[in-house]
Design a binder for these strands. Structure first.
Lengths: 190, 190
DNA sequence: TCGAGTGATGTCATTGACTGACATCACAAT
DNA sequence: ATTGTGATGTCAGTCAATGACATCACTCGA
């Protein structure tokens, strides 16, 4: 366990998840996480901006994935069709192997207001990234934000449903189903 | 300025707004806020849970207002009609006198990630309150969250538009217009 | 009028997140 | 062997947040 074990960030992530799950977020100190990972607290903060961020590493990847799918949607797709493509693309990120991990992680997040806040701002970042992507597709400025917001809502609802049942359908199917529900709901908007 | 000047909470709110606006959120310490309000830092934390919360006092009132409007909507209203009623009710909260204050406050919030996080969780609380209200109206469990989420999106977009133009229309009209845009968007959902 | 009670405040001490400055180590290229 | 370079450790310090306890201003009943 010398100074140079590789992947300090990875060890810190695992340590944090384990400790947050066991003692809760508040009941865990950064020093404890660092100890378990075999590094110093100072090193923790070199890898993650703060105590919350350690649970959200990788969220940029998901965002990139969805933005790319949005951009790659057919030019003649409607705004919501493009958004739907982006949300469906997120399914790549969540294969069934990650379902248990996702469920565990979400449990920790839901139990801690501070972590919920961080999650929300990640979702907001996703929303504005999608909005930007829509604008670049030429979508009207008053339509783009609403379409993006709606898309993220679909993602959230689907994700939650996905992790709520360990043996449920794959997330792609859940997303499709949620999109259908949305469509039905739209009929009631009048 | 004895120990018993009334409305310490109010003085703390004003002091915080002024200092956050002038030196930024990070550039302001709780001790400075307390000093300006003529109290101790310890007293600050007796009135507000943390350094962020001081900018969000009163958000429960808005929530209650909207939930009540939702509950008071005609029994035969569709889910989105009820939600629309709730969003429109929020207009009571934002008369034109508050527009300048709201704009100022929003500037501070937008400039500070930590405050954005707090704002987002308030919105999330609003969403779940509306969801609960919808469920109590008998709305289907898979429809309620989406309807609530959509309603909050409408509120956010409208609010932002409202404060972006000091001499623009009153917020009620902006909300109505946003609801129309949403309706148009729904047509594209297919 | 006085003394007990109450609620808001002050004081003090402590923990823990986070940061800057600087030293140090492992490894690589020369 | 020498020198760099990047990741880490060490140390000191700031500041948010909390618990424990004292104190003050004011109220009310004896």
């Amino acid at each position: 366990m010398g100074r140079w074990e590789p992947d300090a960030a990875g060890r810190l992530r695992e340590a944090a998840m384990a400790l947050y799950a066991e003692h809760g977020y508040d009941g865990t100190t950064v020093a404890e996480i660092a100890d378990r990972a075999g590094v110093t607290a100072r090193t923790f903060f070199r890898h993650f901006a703060d105590k919350r961020e350690v649970l959200f590493a990788g969220s940029e990847l998901l965002e990139q994935l969805m933005v790319k799918a949005l951009a790659d949607a057919p030019a003649d797709a409607t705004p919501m069709e493009a958004v739907a493509a982006a949300v469906l693309a997120s399914a790549e990120f969540f294969d069934d192997i990650r379902r248990e991990y996702s469920r565990r992680r979400q449990g920790v997040i839901n139990a801690t207001p501070e972590l919920r806040e961080r999650e929300l701002i990640k979702m907001a970042a996703l929303t504005s990234a999608l909005t930007k992507g829509l604008l670049e597709r030429g979508v009207a400025p008053d339509v783009a934000p609403l379409a993006a917001e709606t898309g993220v809502a679909v993602f959230r609802v689907s994700f939650e449903r996905w992790i709520s049942d360990p043996d449920g359908e794959p997330i792609v199917d859940i997303i499709r189903s949620t999109l259908k529900t949305l469509k039905a709901l739209s009929g009631l908007t009048a």
